[in-house]
Design a protein around this nucleic acid. Sequence first.
DNA 1: AAAACCTTGACACTCCCGTGGTAACGTTGG
DNA 2: CCAACGTTACCACGGGAGTGTCAAGGTTTT
Lengths: 116, 116
Amino acid sequence: MESLTIHEAAATTGWSARMLRYIERTGLLMAARTASGYRVYGPGELQRLRTLKELLRRFDLGLSEIAFAARLENDSEMREAVQAWLHDQPHRPEHVKPDDWLRFEQEKHERLLQAA
Amino acid sequence: MESLTIHEAAATTGWSARMLRYIERTGLLMAARTASGYRVYGPGELQRLRTLKELLRRFDLGLSEIAFAARLENDSEMREAVQAWLHDQPHRPEHVKPDDWLRFEQEKHERLLQAA
DNA sequence: AAAACCTTGACACTCCCGTGGTAACGTTGG
DNA sequence: CCAACGTTACCACGGGAGTGTCAAGGTTTT
């Protein structure tokens, strides 16, 4: 299993060398380095790069969105806050008196935002 | 229960009227309408708007990122594909010497120090 | 009816993202 | 040694996000 240089890796993955460096800066895929600083791409990285390209194409996504998804995975506090907001309903119950509903919502949001 | 017009809602949530319309376009929060087409904001929407603003501030996010999170929640196929890519070997490959990079950094620093 | 609202649509401006290119300089291989 | 390749650091450009403002027109209030 040999390792490829950045231009070779670019040729076999469909990315440009420029983009491989850019991807590295986003933190999505770091290449190993030789002692003199050259990037080296092994089979695992090559496959991951191909899969990434296909992922973006299939769902029409950008690198920043994948980076955001990674942040969601690693930052549970942020993930929970975002999901709480999203799941906080589009439904307004008529069977609850307005004042009670409002107070309930306010308290829920206060609790949510103070989770630190 | 009082419902507010767009400018009143803006005043009590910290958004501008312009942004409330923009938020509606992103699909994140739709306001109800009067028979003549005026937007009306109830207590639930107002609280949700305040929470949204705080959410973006605390985690330094944009509306498009929240919209993407919503898409992740609703599109299980995309969510699974993204998570599969993220969880696909996030580790350093074994066949690459682990301290090449460190050694490079060390030598670079030495060179810089010698130059100064 | 006039003032003070609301609506959509358009122009504009600033950032950031994704890309390519080039310059200046170090590394590798024939 | 020198050609070919690697590195980082810039400049540039098109497009989308976020935001203000203004115009033209309908609605509500006084």
